[in-house]
């Protein structure tokens, strides 16, 4: 599968939040969208998820305009994890199972239950299955939300700051799990991340966004202190660590 973003512009009133955004991704790739607060990262993700419709331009899935695919058709392809999720009193199992909605009419089939179970196991939530999602930790809750999106069996996985509420260990576990899933299931994964080093370690492609415009797009080779200075306005040094670039913030 290939996702192509062509000339996307989005605005609520006059000031554009996204301004002529173009890029494309293929199955098996992980993209990190990087940029300061208010640069349009979440908006871009919502346009990709078809939650928001762009003012101009379009998103194409294998050449097909996303706007022309039915809501239920899109739901079978795109999984979405929002920045903040509302909880309600339901069990972990049923919460993850609700990700099967696009594939369920009224009756829940054996297949839905098996997929739910598999995802729960992979996410390390088995011991919490019958617990209410209101009575688990913030990190566990976030895992449930990611598990729900995976239970959807998506081909495109969109995650808005999915690691924010996790501790360091869980951040790395979750990031490597998502990266593994992307490679094994040939997903297209798009992250919005704040931690550049986590992004560098777990993604193949990077998109720097500033004031709704793409400042840079490409592989690890585009990471430089200049681009980080330009986008974030912060002085950094790029080191090489275990064959991967690593961003160190300079003092003063």
């Amino acid at each position: 599968m290939r996702i192509t973003v062509k000339g996307i512009t989005f605005s609520y009133n006059s000031a554009p939040i996204l301004d002529n955004v173009n890029f494309s991704l293929e199955s098996g790739q992980i993209l990190s969208i990087l940029g300061p607060n208010g640069s349009g990262k979440t908006t871009l993700l919502k346009v990709l998820a078809s939650i928001l419709s762009p003012k101009n331009g379009a998103v194409f899935l294998d050449g097909k305009n996303l706007a022309e695919i039915s809501l239920s058709g899109k739901a079978k392809i795109i999984g979405y994890v929002p920045q903040r999720s509302e909880g309600f009193n339901t069990s972990v199992f049923e919460a993850v199972l609700s990700g099967r909605k696009p594939h369920v009419h009224f009756r829940i089939k054996k297949e839905d239950i098996q997929i739910t179970e598999r995802v729960i196991n992979v996410m390390g939530l088995s011991h919490l299955k019958s617990k209410s999602i209101m009575r688990i930790s913030g990190g566990e809750f976030q895992k449930v939300i990611i598990a729900r999106a995976l239970a959807q069996n998506p081909k495109v996985l969109l995650l808005d700051e999915p690691l924010t509420y996790l501790d360091i260990k869980n951040q790395f576990e979750m990031a490597s799990l998502i990266s593994k899933a992307t490679k094994e299931l040939h997903l297209i994964t798009v992250f919005v991340l704040h931690d550049i080093n986590l992004a560098l370690r777990y993604s193949d492609v990077f998109l720097f966004l500033k004031e709704g415009r793409i400042e840079a797009f490409g592989g690890k080779e585009i990471i430089s202190s200049e681009i980080i200075m330009k986008v974030f306005g912060i002085d950094v040094e790029i080191k090489e660590m275990m064959g991967s670039p690593y961003v160190l913030i300079k003092n003063g």
């Binding site: 939650i51 239920s72 979405y80 929002p82 999720s85 990700g99 909605k101």
Partner: peptide, 23 residues
Amino acid sequence: LTRSNDLNVIKWGDDVAKTLGVK
């Protein structure tokens, strides 16, 4: 009753409901 699965999903919020195929 026929809409009960949709009603289950909209508890996640309107955005998520949309990505699960429910308006």
